[in-house]
Design a protein around this nucleic acid. Structure first.
Length: 379
DNA sequence: GATGCAG
DNA sequence: CTGCATCAACGCTTC
DNA sequence: GAAGCG
């Protein structure tokens, strides 16, 4: 048993709700010093909640205040489902160059929670944790053995027979808890519970080498869009927040990973066939020509993840993965235009430009027929 | 960043 | 009590 | 067989 005194507690009001119970408008009240030294909270590790709840995951209304909740219920903070996340070391600097702290990260995710949560919902998360900031080595965590009650997890049987409990991010509390654990980007699977072996999107990662400028990446993203739309697919783009562009092909969850990966690789082969001086699918860095954009299709394997839209990246400037309208790819957008400070304003102004991704359900049959025709020798 | 275990 | 290890994994490649 | 790659 251990006693923790939270130095600060998050004050977040969750005021409005959509019909299906998702948060619409969070009001981040900032971080408040814990004034009462006696208001120590006993944080007891709990076995993570094992059930996947489709409904009823709605977090507690009102101010999420650990201290108050603990007092009110008289029970240990971690064991009360109505209790919010405990924030530790909010002043810890995670981006040394900019001086951005863990508190900044938490404030960001709180602000964008209503927009990012629908994209994370029901997707197992691969936690990539940076407890000591982006300049120190991170570590990965798949199995979430202990977590507060508000964190839902889903058991997944691994190939070796072992059981791994993946976290699902179903509510704002979990988002804050993750950020507090040093999780900077959110890395969800490409499939959702309960259909974990059926991806509901394909991602093409256009990853430029050091000597290809961003406008060139944008122009090739537009070209890949032409290819995919020519196959009859509705597709969407976002910045990766690192150097490249991610193109999403939303799917009806009807294919397995072998099929979606196979399709992605065929598209990759076709892109290289048509523009061999621009694209490469060569995975080895050494064998890869340094003036070509790496079209990474291998991310579409089972159990892999791609940094989600609105994820903060572990990069200088605390850039975020930002959805783009196709017209924006033709204009002068820069990766650095979208960061931890500017994204909330853009969301307020433009709304969720990736909302359609969750409503679109492409089929692959027709596209595959067309693609096979295009790939026939002699064409 | 949190845990659990060795010393 | 302090200190230290642990916290993933997949297909494919080249060395 | 090990190590690199994303």
């Amino acid at each position: 048993m251990q006693w923790i005194r939270p130095r600060l507690v998050a004050e977040v009001e969750f005021a409005e709700w959509t019909d299906d119970g998702r948060m619409r408008q969070p009001i981040f009240m900032g971080l408040r010093p814990d004034k009462d030294p006696k208001a120590c909270v006993r944080e007891e590790a709990q076995p993570a909640e094992r059930l996947v709840e489709s409904a009823g995951t709605r977090p507690g209304l009102g101010t999420t205040d650990v201290t108050k909740a603990a007092k009110a219920t008289g029970s240990p903070a971690g064991s009360d489902p109505g209790t919010g996340p405990v924030i530790t070391h909010p002043d810890k600097v995670l981006w040394p160059e900019e001086g951005y702290t863990k508190g900044d990260l938490i404030a960001y995710y709180t602000a964008v929670a209503p927009f990012i949560l629908p994209h994370l919902k029901d997707r197992p998360l691969i936690l990539k944790r940076y407890p000591n900031g982006i300049g120190a080595p991170p570590f990965y965590q798949h199995d979430v053995k202990t977590a507060p009650a508000f964190v839902k997890t889903i058991p997944v049987r691994e190939e070796d027979g072992s059981l791994v409990h993946y976290a699902l991010c179903q509510n704002p509390e979990t988002l804050i808890w993750l950020a507090n654990m040093g999780v900077i980007p959110q890395n969800p699977w490409l499939s959702r519970a309960p259909e974990l072996s059926r991806p509901d999107w394909i991602v093409f990662d256009l990853d430029p080498p050091g000597d290809v400028a961003f406008p060139e990446v944008c122009s090739l993203a537009l070209y890949l869009r032409e290819i995919l739309e020519g196959l009859g697919l509705k597709v969407f783009a976002k910045t990766s927040g690192s150097r490249g562009i991610h193109i999403y092909v939303p799917l009806k969850p009807a294919y397995d990973f072998t099929q979606s990966l196979g399709f992605a690789q065929l598209v990759g082969a076709y892109a290289v066939k048509v523009k061999p001086d621009s694209f490469t699918v060569e995975r080895s860095l050494k064998a890869r020509k340094t003036d070509r954009i790496y079209l990474d299709c291998m991310q579409n394997s089972e159990g892999k993840s791609v940094a989600s839209v609105y994820s903060v990246r572990e990069k200088p400037g605390a850039t975020v993965s930002a959805p783009l309208e196709w017209a924006e790819l033709k204009r002068k957008v820069r990766m650095e235009d979208f960061d931890i400070r500017t994204m909330p304003k853009r969301l307020e102004k433009r709304g969720d430009l990736f909302a359609e991704v969750l409503k679109t359900r492409n089929s692959l049959e027709g596209a595959l027929r067309k693609l096979e025709k295009l790939l026939q020798p002699g064409r």
